[in-house]
Amino acid sequence: MTGSENAPDRVVATDAAIELIRKLKDIHGPVMFHQSGGCCDGSAPMCFPDGEFKTGDQDVLLGEIEGSPFYIGRAQFEYWRHTQLIIDVVDGRGGMFSLEGPEGKRFLTRSRIFSDDEWNALKAHEEKAPITD
């Protein structure tokens, strides 16, 4: 957990995802992630060179994984507000525009519901430092 209120991170990554992120950063330089609520490829976390995906008013900066910003569409954030997103990686082809595709891997979002204590800490933390766009 992080933050002054011991608030949990809203997004974390598995060891396998961190290893792939490091590889992608070695190849492409800094990267960023975006998770939308769309269908098909849009429902998977997409990895882009940092700054290539233009975020807007309907995107929320959820946190960072391996030093890379992770954004989520506001509608999807509202739906998943009570969960921690766990970014994992599996074999297979993912989004055709996501950087991991040529590696034969794809990022995948798993989630877990925050405990009552975590949720209370998160609410207290966000009262002082609200989620930003």
Rank of each mutant, 00 (worst) to 15 (best):
D117E: 15
G104P: 15
E118R: 09
A16C: 04
P30V: 03
S68I: 09
L24R: 09
G37M: 07
F70L: 12
L20G: 02
Q84Y: 02
L61W: 07
D59I: 10
E64W: 09
K123D: 00
K128R: 15
F33D: 02
A13P: 01
P8W: 01
T2R: 07
L108M: 12
P69R: 02
E19P: 04
E5P: 00
I72F: 07
F77N: 06
I65S: 03
D59F: 14
V89W: 10
E103I: 01
E64H: 12
Q35A: 15
P8K: 04
G92S: 08
L61A: 10
Q76A: 09
N120C: 04
D91M: 07
E103K: 13
T132M: 14
M46I: 06
H82P: 00
Y79E: 13
C40P: 04
G104L: 02
V60L: 08
D91Y: 03
E19I: 11
T83H: 13
S98W: 00
G92K: 05
D88H: 11
V11R: 00
V60C: 04
A129P: 02
G3E: 04
F33W: 06
Q84K: 13
I27G: 14
H125F: 13
F48I: 08
D15F: 09
S115R: 12
Q84D: 06
E126H: 13
L99H: 14
V31G: 07
N6P: 00
Q84E: 15
Y79D: 14
D91G: 12
T132R: 15
D88Q: 08
G95F: 03
T132V: 15
G3T: 02
Q84G: 10
E118M: 06
G63F: 02
L62Q: 04
V90D: 03
E78S: 06
L24H: 11
K123I: 04
L24S: 11
E100Y: 04
S68V: 06
S68P: 08
F114V: 09
Q35C: 10
T2S: 09
E66A: 15
G92A: 10
V89Q: 08
Q76N: 15
G95M: 06
K128A: 08
T132L: 13
I131H: 07
T2Y: 01
W80T: 03
G51L: 06
T2G: 02
A13G: 11
A124M: 08
A7H: 06
R106N: 04
L122D: 00
S68N: 04
G63Y: 05
F48M: 05
E5M: 05
P69F: 05
G37H: 05
M32P: 02
E100L: 02
L99P: 03
Y71M: 10
K23C: 11
L24V: 12
R10G: 08
Q84N: 05
P69A: 03
V31R: 00
A75S: 12
